[in-house]
């Protein structure tokens, strides 16, 4: 952290390619035993199943095909709105048969940011895959929460703003589909 002038350029991104599992989730493919666990298997290790919500969805390309070679990563605060360095991170891929991803996590709380603004409950999400020269970023908000004063949602003047809001299916269960292209293209963020 610094207030002086920046003098280096950020290293450019390149696509993660189709084989990112080797480096990021070796246990999810056939490379077992090298690492004890894949990182981000559970975002909150000490929580019981009944304290968790479920967010399900698929990532669709411009042809409407649900992809299974994408990697998703999420980062969030806990139910009290507190960010903890050692929890709140998850990494997952869609199931290769159903093409659906499932994230089980705690429902994040609201928090007040460095600038004093109150943020509605949300999860930060990044998507990396073959065909994406840069990782994409977006946020997952929740249907049923107070959303109209959120500092991000309130500046988006676009009917696709709903793409950032997970639909409530039943208590504790949400649907969040991601559309990479098309009329209903998900809103992506320059974070």
């Amino acid at each position: 952290m610094n207030t002086s002038k920046e003098n280096l350029d950020e290293t450019p991104f390149q696509t993660a390619g189709p084989f990112l599992h080797i480096g990021c989730m070796p246990n999810a493919i056939k490379i077992k035993k090298l690492y004890q666990n894949d990182l981000g298997e559970k975002p909150f290790k000490n929580k019981n199943e009944n304290e968790l919500i479920t967010i399900e969805g698929s990532v669709f390309d411009g042809n409407g095909i649900a992809l299974d070679d994408v990697m998703l990563e999420t980062w969030q605060c806990d139910e009290k709105g507190e960010f903890k360095e050692d929890s709140g991170f998850a990494r997952f891929i869609p199931n290769n048969l159903t093409k659906k991803f499932v994230l089980k996590t705690v429902k994040p709380g609201t928090f007040k940011d460095f600038d004093g603004k109150i943020h509605s409950p949300h999860i930060s999400l990044s998507i990396s895959s073959r065909g994406l020269n840069m990782t994409l970023n977006t946020r997952i908000y929740f249907e049923g929460d107070e959303l109209k004063n959120d500092p991000l949602l309130s500046i988006i003047n676009n009917s696709n703003v709903n793409s950032l809001i997970a639909k409530k299916i039943k208590k504790g269960s949400y649907l969040f589909n991601i559309l990479l292209q098309g009329e209903k293209e998900t809103i992506f963020l320059d974070i």
């Binding site: 696509t15 990182l39 981000g40 390309d61 411009g62 042809n63 095909i65 992809l67 980062w75 969030q76 605060c77 960010f83 360095e85 050692d86 709140g88 991170f89 928090f111 940011d113 460095f114 600038d115 603004k117 943020h119 949300h122 930060s124 895959s129 073959r130 065909g131 994406l132 020269n133 994409l136 946020r139 500092p151 991000l152 500046i155 988006i156 696709n160 990479l180 292209q181 293209e185 998900t186 809103i187 992506f188 963020l189 320059d190 974070i191």
Partner: peptide, 28 residues
């Protein structure tokens, strides 16, 4: 890069001011 044709989003990304969600992060 052919794989980008049906995967690269077409709309402009939304810029906004950073919050704890972007500034903080997992530490390993």
């Amino acid at each position: 890069y052919k794989s980008s044709i049906f995967r690269a989003p077409k709309n402009k990304k939304i810029s906004f001011s950073s919050s704890d969600s972007e500034i903080l992060g997992p530490i390993f």
